[in-house]
Write a protein that binds this DNA or RNA. Structure first.
Length: 303
DNA sequence: TCCCAGGTAGATC
DNA sequence: GATCTACATGGG
């Protein structure tokens, strides 16, 4: 639930086809799409992206504090994109809280403060992060793209390329292990089969899990083969709206060790520390840190 | 060629 | 309980 003080107002206009937000704050499209939380986007130019989410394809462009949502209706914006991009939440306030008395968060937010946490579909998030384990982000995107191309529905095209929806649970549940392997899912194929069947049967669903506490929902997720602490945390954070979740992966482990511990520590200790320090803002803190860690690694590899 | 990747399950100590 | 290892596949 969003509290009233976290809601902000914006100047939103439209011309004949497009929705335009002219004074967006705390939002950098490239950072939000490329920080590893979602996998279904194409960078078309420095300012333009094509994304697919919630069975829609969308062309977006950002110039400074103006964002244009191309070829979309007011209704589609209100029902889909406003929520997807978490538009009504006041990230300025969240960032102030995280930065208070924390040099590390201040540095991370200085370069990565345009990230917003997307509200993604539960099914897609779960399947995507099962695929993500022990894999590089570019590969995750390739595998999910293959899965959608093969089993999703065409949604439209841009410059000759067709974009496909993420497959429905009925379709996912009927894909064989061999089918997932053909999408290059490797050893994760058997996990995907099991998860898809759980989704189709309804034994695991976004509806059910959203009604639970975070601990209960996490327990349900970890009950699936191939879903452990990290994958479940990502699913809770990106697919179910549990913004206190703090996924600890190799990047977050490394950057937390560097910034807060000065030595190698166990994941469990990092988890505990983050829970204590960031509390209900854990998910936001984690995203800023994750992006900051990757940005630093990029710089080093380029020199 | 080698190391590693938004980890996890199962074996072993 | 804590630690070790296999796992598919390809990017750098």
């Amino acid at each position: 639930m969003m509290t009233k003080e976290e809601v902000i107002s914006l100047k939103i206009t439209r011309d004949d086809k497009n929705i335009i937000i002219q004074d967006i704050k705390d939002f950098t499209l490239s950072q939000t799409l490329e920080c590893g939380q979602c996998f279904r986007y194409d960078k078309i130019s420095e300012e333009d992206y094509i994304i697919v989410a919630w069975k829609r394809m969308l062309h977006l462009r950002q110039e400074n504090d103006t964002i244009t949502f191309y070829n979309t209706s007011t209704e589609e914006y209100e029902t889909i994109w406003k929520n997807y991009f978490d538009i009504d939440r006041d990230y300025g306030k969240i960032k102030e809280i995280l930065k208070a008395d924390d040099e590390n968060m201040t540095k991370a937010i200085a370069t990565q403060g345009g990230i917003r946490i997307l509200n993604q579909e539960f099914n897609e998030t779960l399947i995507s992060f099962i695929i993500s384990q022990n894999q590089q982000i570019v590969r995750i995107r390739q595998i999910i793209a293959a899965l959608c191309e093969k089993y999703g529905e065409p949604l439209g095209e841009y410059e000759g390329k067709t974009y496909y929806s993420f497959p429905d649970t009925d379709v996912l549940a009927n894909i064989t292990e061999e089918g997932y392997r053909e999408c290059k899912a490797g050893f994760r194929a058997k996990y995907l089969c099991e998860a898809a069947k759980a989704l189709q049967s309804g034994s695991v669903s976004g509806e059910l899990l959203r009604q639970m506490t975070r601990e209960e929902a996490q327990e349900q997720l970890i009950g699936l083969k191939g879903v452990g602490k990290k994958v479940s945390d990502c699913t809770l954070l990106f697919g179910l709206g549990f913004r206190e979740a703090f996924p600890v992966d190799v990047w977050v482990k490394r950057i937390m060790e560097e910034l807060y511990f000065g030595r190698d520590v166990k994941k469990e200790l990092i988890q505990e520390f983050a829970c204590e320090k960031f509390g209900k803002y854990g998910g936001y803190a984690q995203q800023y840190l994750f992006a900051y860690a990757r940005e630093n690694a990029n710089k080093k590899s380029k020199t």
